[in-house]
């Protein structure tokens, strides 16, 4: 199994004091696929991301990255392992220009050699980095915003910038935290097209409330409730799973299935 996955998690349990946020969670992400994580608020979706990205220390559980079993990574190691993450609410630096924000995604201080970073901090390296950032912005369709400040952008534009920032490090695994939140249907469609293109380059894991959006783009869907994976598989499979219907609607009725297929949950 682990030879064919970019990222594999098993038996992940996270406890905050007496509260169990994640309970024996598993997740397998194959290369060049989009994996969607859905579930009600508080189901533990973002906690999975936080565990992968070193913001939360798992109580127990194993992680393999690119088929190699390893310790849970620290935040500053993510780029080293080819993992890139966007944040809920975008998380751009308000005091840096758009292009500088994108440059920040490039793992600019590799962490392995501080002194080399410090004295190699030349204008030349910076100019090269700036060019890469402009390339990433161009790919995300946001080149004309390069010199603006994040505060001057519309919300959908900031989403494009955060994608460019995630891409500049050329990640193998991209974690997107609620990328469609706050977008109108038009922008969601454009965004879905962008992600399908992006899949050629890397595996993508998406946490999202917008069920239609997940259904349209995901190869695999995991449904969480109360910190447990209650169903997984293709979207068509999970949306018919009685456990999922019960979690979303409290009962498993046919009308429920229609609602789940057509609603924004």
């Amino acid at each position: 199994m682990s030879e064919t996955t970019d990222l594999s998690i098993s038996n992940l349990t996270v406890k905050f004091g007496g509260l169990t946020a994640l309970d024996d969670v598993f997740l397998d992400v194959a290369p060049n696929t989009i994996v969607g994580l859905i579930g009600p608020n508080g189901a533990g979706k973002t906690t999975i991301f936080n565990s992968i990205s070193g913001l939360v220390t798992p109580t127990s559980g194993e992680i393999s990255i690119h088929g190699k079993k390893m310790k849970w990574p620290a935040s500053h190691q993510l780029a080293e392992f080819g993992i890139s993450r966007t944040l809920q609410g975008v998380g751009l630096f308000s005091g840096l220009s758009v292009v500088e924000n994108v440059m920040m995604g490039a793992n600019i201080t590799s962490g392995s050699n501080f002194l080399k970073d410090l004295f190699g901090a030349s204008g030349k390296a910076e100019a090269k980095l700036r060019r890469r950032a402009l390339d990433a912005l161009a790919w995300a369709g946001a080149l004309d915003m390069a010199e603006k400040m994040p505060g001057d952008l519309t919300y959908p534009q900031t989403k494009r910038v955060s994608i460019a920032r995630a891409l500049i490090s050329q990640p193998k695994i991209l974690l997107l935290d609620e990328p469609a939140a706050g977008l109108g249907q038009d922008d969601i469609d454009k965004f879905a097209a962008l992600l399908k293109q992006l899949k050629q380059r890397c595996a993508i894991i998406i946490v999202e409330h917008h069920v239609d959006f997940i259904g349209a783009i995901s190869d695999q869907v995991y449904v969480l409730n109360f910190g447990k994976v209650i169903s997984s598989g293709t979207f068509d499979h999970v949306k018919r799973d009685p456990a999922v219907l019960a979690a979303y609607l409290g009962t498993s009725t046919q009308t429920g299935s229609e609602k789940l297929g057509g609603g924004h949950a």
Partner: peptide
């Protein structure tokens, strides 16, 4: 203004958590 390390320091001053996620120690 003109070096990557300087950019990293400005970013850390603005938002430490996002800076960490961007690989900044």
């Amino acid at each position: 203004k003109k070096t990557s390390m300087g950019l990293a320091m400005r970013a850390t001053a603005l938002n430490q958590e996002v800076a960490k996620l961007s690989g900044i120690r």
